[in-house]
Write a protein that binds this DNA or RNA. Structure first.
Length: 849
DNA sequence: CAGTGAGCGAGCTTCCGCTTGACTT
């Protein structure tokens, strides 16, 4: 008897093969094999005329979905059909969650088996688990399949009815969805808080102290003055920068702080209180997808996408368990392996006396897989695993975190000491605290990273000499310290994934793509690790908040999950649910239709940013990017916001300035000494530039030149403008060859050129006043390189996505990155020695676009 | 490159969740 077993992932087929009888044929579906049509070209022609064809769901007839096989899956289906013909039995072993159940159902629908069909489920691939699964087949759970279908249809209806509204009202190709719109709103909301934020400055004192019989100097901070608490960051209102309760705290400014320091000059310093307390710490749960992405981002600087690429490789090569999971649960096998490793590596005293297992993952977790951990029944030590580069670093982190779960608690002792300084009738209270690690426990293996640098200090020791109440200490100087309150930090990929997961939005398989999607749609730009929402993000979020609140509310997903649970329990009918969402007066369809009439496109493009004193300047997003508008003397003036500006860069002052240049018209800063034409400083889409003469009707383009980086329009005088317009300019002739050397600004920045050889200027050079000697120097540096053959500067390791080698090379035309056989030059302002794998990957993906 | 912020109009854009493709140097 031949059985065909279908799983979701090809890697699983390999491991599963070991535990299944020899005559079982195992193959994979590669995820879903059928779906609603993704685009117009996937809609079968016989449905194209239908009103609902674009949705792929017959909303007029019971929300019947139209399923198609995407081109990429045709081969898979054909192959599975062939294999099934040769089999006597079909065993569906897709994942044990909502999506997995649906995949099994789609497989039966497509393969139409005329042999017996069995559903097999297991949560770990071990001999016992598989043997048990083989004896406990069940049927496909149609309620669960219905729940998945409802989820799929809801997402489609929401996404494909609201997105077109955005095309009509704001800009084509925009998108909205249950997940992405909430993610974008998180970013926009945080940015609004930052824009409203008003910083405050306050001062305190830091005292250097030592014991009478001990030279060790420690520091203590002023916390109270004459019994009243000193103001610190949390006492200030974020939106005003003023104290929330001015009467209950003491606020020191620069002068008062210095005065107090002088007053304390003759003070007596005495320990007034010593408190000790011990605390125990438990290790974090084993990794799930979201926490792995966060830690790799914090500790290794990987993006979510990179992390998943590296993890995929580790998984395929049998180093780790499945990397897309929402459960922190460790199997019995894993716990044993971890405990064995702890004992071997750290000794028995580091082993936790009980088994520690963190069941239950996040909100809405489906727990089809266990935690991400080293594969197998005994863990390979990272150093002995034969890994390098990114794979080694990620595996090492996973190994340590897993081991740590079975390690003893860490024990810490905190000592808080209060010291009083009395002088001139004033009592100043200083505090200091020490931290001692009594027993490191799991700290030996693993300490969780943090987005907050202050919290990262948590696990460091902080020595403090022993002191007792009443003891006198000696002052070694007191210094006023100024502090500034900071706005809430922008999201990073790590903190966004954390927030999404906390709200139960998105799934392990989608966190990385959510971030890509919102970037691709132009809602977000990454600046290093931070994610910054664009003007478009503000416009879209505003429109949704005002008109379709559900879609930007994270409660929508939790509400949907509750309904899906009911469907999965057989307590709610799928059509009833979908109809209540889509039809009726309060349904999505009617709402969108109503908004389509109601919303004025011009008003939808009008941003309401939390800016103060805007004085009727209005901000819009338009076809050519963001622009501003103001009525001046009955006339409507508009002008572009330069492309490099972010929403949070806007201030009333800067916008006034833009309007002013527009209002005054092109303002001449003088006439060209030769032609006599006026020279203007103008503001264009790419920022400020200078122009000679007016634009005439006859299509002739006037001479123009952009301002250089860091130049401000009001600083441009005639002399500077002429210099800019002169580029490329001649520097004279090369002393050796007699040929001319020119300086100019090109696509890759300022350069000098001689006899067809270009050399980029360094950051410290200025193209406007660079002299011949310096140009010769730059060119000869370049020449030295050109006489050499390319040489490797640094090996970076393997690219996480394709495993090809990445290295930094020094070539004839300057340093470049070599990725497989492709080369990418580095710009001159980066230090080739300091290039990291992360930089290289960024460059490669950018250039590949 | 760069100034504008409108409109002709066929056919298209868009969602979320599963999973990894590989024609040749």
């Amino acid at each position: 008897m031949k059985s065909l077993v279908i799983v979701e992932s090809p890697t699983k087929t390999k491991t599963l093969k070991k535990y299944l009888p020899k005559d079982y044929v195992i193959d994979s579906s590669m995820g879903h094999i059928r779906d609603l049509p993704a685009s117009a070209k996937e809609i079968p022609s016989k449905y194209k005329k239908e009103d609902w064809s674009n949705l792929g769901v017959n909303v007029d007839k019971g929300f019947e979905p139209l399923y198609v096989i995407p081109a990429s899956k045709k081969k898979v289906v054909k192959n599975l059909k062939k294999l099934l013909k040769q089999s006597d039995e079909l065993i569906l072993a897709t994942d044990e969650d909502r999506e997995g159940e649906a995949i099994s159902w789609h497989l039966t629908e497509l393969l139409k088996p005329d042999v017996p069909v069995k559903r097999m489920v297991f949560r770990e691939i071990t001999k016992e688990a598989i043997e048990q699964a083989l004896e406990n087949f069940r049927d496909i759970d149609m309620n669960l399949v219905n729940a998945q279908e409802a989820r799929r249809i809801i997402d489609r209806l929401a996404g494909y009815t609201v997105s077109p509204l955005l095309w009509k009202k704001i800009a084509p190709k925009l998108s909205a969805g249950r997940v992405q719109s909430v993610a974008v709103r998180f970013l926009v909301d945080r940015e609004r808080e930052r824009m409203k934020f008003r910083s405050a400055r306050y001062w305190d004192l830091k005292a250097k102290l030592h014991k009478q019989d001990d030279e060790y100097i420690f520091e203590a901070d002023l916390t109270h003055l004459d019994g009243k608490r000193l103001a610190s960051g949390k006492d200030f209102d974020e939106n005003t920068g003023k104290l929330k309760k001015p009467k209950s705290v003491v606020l020191l400014d620069d002068k008062k702080a210095s005065q107090l320091r002088d007053d304390l000059d003759q003070a007596e310093w005495k320990v007034s209180n010593v408190e000790k307390n011990r605390q125990k710490r438990n290790p974090s749960p084993a990794f799930i997808t979201s926490t792995l992405q966060q830690e790799a981002n914090r500790k290794l600087g990987f993006s979510a996408k990179q992390t998943m690429g590296v993890a995929q490789k580790l998984y395929e090569n049998g180093y780790i368990t499945y990397m897309r999971t929402d459960s922190a649960r460790l199997s019995g096998q894993a716990i044993n392996a971890a405990r064995t490793a702890v004992e071997k590596e750290y000794g028995k005293e580091y082993l936790f006396d009980r088994v520690r297992n963190y069941g239950g993952g996040s909100k809405g977790a489906q727990e089809a897989h266990e935690a991400i951990r080293p594969a197998g029944s005994s863990f390979r030590k990272p150093e002995d695993a034969g890994l390098s580069g990114a794979q080694f670093r990620l595996y090492d982190m996973i190994w340590k975190r897993t081991i740590a779960t079975q390690m003893a608690q860490a024990e810490l002792e905190f000592t808080n000491v209060t010291i009083e300084a009395k002088a001139n009738g004033k009592t100043a209270e200083f505090r200091t605290s020490g931290k001692e690690i009594i027993f490191p426990g799991f700290f030996r293996a693993y300490v969780e990273g943090s987005d907050d640098p202050e919290a990262a200090l948590e696990n460091q020791e902080n020595y403090l000499p022993g002191m007792s109440e009443g003891e006198e200490v000696i002052e070694d100087g007191v210094e006023p310290i100024s502090h500034e309150t900071k706005p809430p930090a922008r999201f990073t990929e790590a903190s966004l994934v954390k927030e999404l997961e906390k709200q139960g939005i998105g799934r392990p398989s989608t966190y990385a793509t959510i971030i890509s999607t919102i970037q691709d749609r132009g809602y977000v730009e990454a600046d290093g690790k931070t994610l910054i929402p664009t003007f478009t993000a503000f416009a879209v979020t505003e429109l949704l908040e005002k008109n379709l609140e559900d879609l930007v509310d994270s409660d929508f997903t939790s509400d949907m999950e509750n309904k899906l649970d009911k469907i999965a329990q057989g307590e709610l009918d799928i059509e009833t649910y979908l109809s209540s969402y889509f039809n009726g007066e309060e349904g999505l369809k009617a709402k969108v239709e109503k908004q389509e009439e109601k919303i004025d496109p011009q008003e939808a493009k009008h941003l309401h940013l939390p800016l103060q004193d805007l004085d009727d300047i209005q901000v819009f997003v338009g076809r050519f990017g963001p622009y501003i508008k103001k009525q001046v003397n009955g006339e409507e003036l508009t002008t572009s916001i330069p492309v490099s500006w972010k929403p949070s860069d806007l201030t009333a002052e800067k916008l006034e300035e833009l309007i002013k240049t527009e209002e005054e018209g092109p303002k001449s800063i003088g006439d060209h000494p030769e032609s006599g034409e006026p020279i203007f400083v103008l503001n264009g889409r790419y920022g400020p530039y200078v122009q000679v003469g007016e634009v005439t009707e006859d299509n002739k383009k006037p001479k123009r030149a952009s301002l250089l980086k860091g130049m401000s329009p009001e600083d441009v005088d005639l002399e500077l403008a002429l210099k800019l317009l002169e580029l490329p300019r001649s520097l004279g002739n090369h002393p050796d060859t007699g040929k001319e050397i020119k300086a100019g600004v090109g696509r890759y920045g300022p350069f000098v050129v001689h006899d067809g050889t270009f050399a980029s200027l360094k950051r410290s050079d200025n193209v406007l006043d660079i002299e011949l000697d310096r140009a010769v120097e730059l060119l000869s540096e370049k020449k030295k390189k050109s006489n050499r053959k390319s040489a490797a500067i640094k090996e970076l390791g393997e690219h996480p996505e394709d495993g090809k080698k990445v290295r930094v090379m020094d070539g004839r035309y300057g340093p470049y990155i070599k990725h497989g056989k492709k080369n990418y030059s580095l710009s001159d302002d980066v230090d080739p020695e300091a290039v990291t794998m992360e930089d290289a990957i960024k460059l490669i993906t950018e250039k590949a676009k």
